[in-house]
Nucleic acid binder design. Structure first.
Lengths: 138, 138
DNA sequence: GTTTTCACTTGATTAATGAAAGGAATTGAC
DNA sequence: GTCAATTCCTTTCATTAATCAAGTGAAAAC
């Protein structure tokens, strides 16, 4: 992970589909040398994959919420299965220290679906909801 | 946004650097037709760009925290500038309704740097920290 | 009923990728 | 100090994919 690799990561984070030739120009290498470096980064797991950025509001999911879940009982698996069964709404979730047991990032078409989600969750956990009004960065 | 477009989004989310030819095979179109659809999705802002997934722990930032900031005073700009000045640690942040004013997702090499970050923030806001122990999904 | 539009395919051209060979700089062994 | 091994890069060439330009057919517009 020399400075060239770091630059590669920065450039690919911004524009992950540019050609190796283009990327090579940015880091002052040939396309082939650049591709070899990228391959190494992939093999090391530093580049874990390639994705697209899709603003959720553009695909009908404008309501963005963070739900802190405080579990009622120690068996969590059914709760986690419940989360995994809704990949469209549940983007990511984390086991956490701090106030809750889990922090869930999720997106919904309307507040109605958020309400439905919370009702589904309430079987397993009590919760606290934080609505994201505006996102910065990324 | 017909089912083919949705499939394109799903496939590119998983593997954002596959060739248009490959993607075309998955959605039963030629590479040319697929590229045309992808271009439309880009122009519509539905595909907002291409990125890499880089696990932060692989690049020396294993400590993952969500910081809820409750502002002391109404002028937030200096606080936001402070956040923007640390792009390595501050991944994203949100203006929120609910408990705090801002929710900040951040990564650090060690708890020491988290502490430094919190000290820097404390000038503007009080805070509550949630540490992510394990991530699921994405 | 004709024309326009749209989404797609086909075919030709251009550009990128991948493989192989070779050269310079670095490292370690003796 | 010299030699061999390794690493990292460049160059060249064959292969493959992307791009561009027509062209087709079906649906919508008038």
């Amino acid at each position: 992970m020399d400075p060239t690799d770091q630059l590669i990561l920065r450039e690919l984070s911004q524009s992950g589909r540019m050609t190796m030739k283009e990327l090579g120009e940015k880091v002052h290498l040939t396309g082939q040398a650049t591709a070899a470096r990228v391959l190494k980064l992939e093999e090391a797991g530093i580049i874990d994959g390639y994705t697209i950025r899709v603003p959720k509001e553009k695909i009908g999911y404008p309501v963005h919420a963070f739900v802190t879940a405080i579990m009622h009982e120690p068996r969590h698996q059914k709760f986690l299965d419940e989360l995994d069964s809704q990949p469209d709404t549940v983007s990511r979730y984390f086991k956490t220290s701090g106030e809750g047991c889990y922090l869930i990032e999720c997106h919904f078409p309307t507040h109605q679906e958020l309400d439905d989600f919370l009702n589904g969750i309430s079987e397993f956990a009590s919760y606290k909801v934080t609505i994201a009004i505006q996102q910065y960065g990324q």
